[in-house]
Design a protein around this nucleic acid. Sequence first.
DNA 1: ATAGATGCAAAGGGTTTGCACTTGA
DNA 2: TCAAGTGCAAACCCTTTGCATCTAT
Lengths: 125, 125
Amino acid sequence: MTRNTRQRTVIRQVFEEANRPLGAPEVLDAAQASVNGLGIATVYRTIKSLVEDQWLVPVELPGVPPRYELAGKGHHHHFHCKGCGKVYELEGCVDNLKRLVPAGFEVTGHDVTLSGLCLACASAA
Amino acid sequence: MTRNTRQRTVIRQVFEEANRPLGAPEVLDAAQASVNGLGIATVYRTIKSLVEDQWLVPVELPGVPPRYELAGKGHHHHFHCKGCGKVYELEGCVDNLKRLVPAGFEVTGHDVTLSGLCLACASAA
DNA sequence: ATAGATGCAAAGGGTTTGCACTTGA
DNA sequence: TCAAGTGCAAACCCTTTGCATCTAT
């Protein structure tokens, strides 16, 4: 079964401490501080395994590589900062969405992504 | 300046006749019916040039390669069919979006993507 | 005639995979 | 011990680019 390797432990910690969705390169950067020689392939493999375990869920945003966040957070959406590229969780949702689709279309999901500048980038600008 | 090549003419026709956003492979498929030997590189180069001319605009959706649609359509969103992969335009929008972001964040744009099955795929299922 | 456009193949990013080596149980 | 996990490099997919050839103008 799954072993508790140093790499896997550190990668989980990185997600637990991030409080926001992370992409594979962000995970690599953060985890390399604790695991010398960590390779990007291990990051991808570990993320994949954690998604299969339903410990992580993928966060797909328009035009950027996927991020991943801890599972079990309930329905929410995201903010993508065009300054630093970081993705943040947003609480709440919108409604009346199904009214937008033509008759006969079957809606099974939706994504809402706001973009702009996060607090840090807006302050710096 | 820009020349009216057979390839460029046909690629424009493909977009005009599609009535929905198209990805590069879709354009290649459709255009090859009229231009023998058309290469994917030409499709990408032509799309890029038409975007620079503001004749096309990119349509970025979560988790899939970009599509492109005719410019000048006004604000709208999209539906992504998980059956056939086609993307459709939706009219209308949602409001009260800015209330979702934390104080200090600056919102400059938003994307709303509905997904599910289009009429054809829902009927087939 | 000649600069822009094309097609092919090679090169680039991001992600996955094969394989020999390492390591947790 | 010994199979799962790791790191490296090669492979892959989608997109871009270099280059010789072709073609609108």
